[in-house]
Computed example of a mutant assay.
Amino acid sequence: MDDPPPRGDADGGAGDDLHLIYPDAQLADRSAAAGALRRLAHAFVRHRTDPETLAEIAAWAEATAGRLEAGSAPVPRPADYFARRYEDPRPPDGAEVMAFSDRAFSGPANPTAMEVDMRRDGDGVRAQVTFGAAFESAPGRAHGGSVCAVVDDVLGYLMVCLGVAAYTARLEIDYRGGVPIDEPVNFSGREIRREGRKSHVELAVRAASAAADAPPLIEATGLFVIVTADQLAAE
């Protein structure tokens, strides 16, 4: 039987196939603003301008940050984030999966994130990611640290797709080729075995234009330690 629809479905202009764990009434507007800020960040890194424009950007950024900080108290992450793994249904197969709209590295409403489309793929997870100029290290290549961050995030979403709460315990990453900037790349992760509370996982990264059996640019293995519902209830 297919999993039932998620609690907290798409809103704020999101697509019908979005499994959004924590709804954001301003998802479309916040994502649009964050997207504009990401474009600004990439343009700032890639281009040069005159001192007057730099001063204008600095003044605008400081003033806008002040307005945001004065406009509301900081919004904390919900305390039931892990407990929801055992209360909510799993995301439907093929659905786009999003925990927080401004999640680090992948949230569309986070201006420091990459461009990411994250989806459940059977009992695995797949993501298409584009790294912009702000993440460039060696010419034409994304910084290895930014790639590692997305590897961890994708595998974290694998836990969401599996319906368990878990922490990253170990990641081992083999950089076999450079991950390009300004081009989509595909991340594909799955659980290879489970031993009690230990979830052993693997992930591969390939250029989106490459064949499915092409040698991966990145291979990763990891260990996630599951926090059970009983452990969460005892906290």
Rank of each mutant, 00 (worst) to 15 (best):
I226Y: 05
E56Y: 13
R190E: 15
S209K: 06
R38L: 11
P215D: 10
Y86A: 00
P215K: 03
A214R: 10
R170K: 14
Q128I: 10
A234V: 02
L171K: 07
V147S: 01
D93G: 07
A95Q: 07
P5S: 08
E202D: 15
D88I: 03
A127E: 11
L223T: 06
S146T: 11
V151H: 02
G177P: 11
R194T: 12
A65T: 14
Q128L: 07
E235P: 00
E195A: 13
D174Y: 07
L37H: 11
A33S: 09
L217K: 01
A208N: 07
G15L: 05
G8Y: 08
A33Y: 09
L203K: 07
R119G: 06
I173A: 04
V75F: 14
R194V: 11
E172L: 11
A58F: 08
G144P: 09
V225W: 08
V147T: 07
A165D: 09
L223I: 14
M98K: 02
F105A: 00
S137G: 14
P111I: 03
P78S: 01
E191P: 03
V201F: 08
I218N: 02
D153R: 02
A79E: 15
L232N: 03
D230A: 15
A204L: 11
A214P: 08
G132E: 09
L37A: 15
H47N: 07
R119N: 09
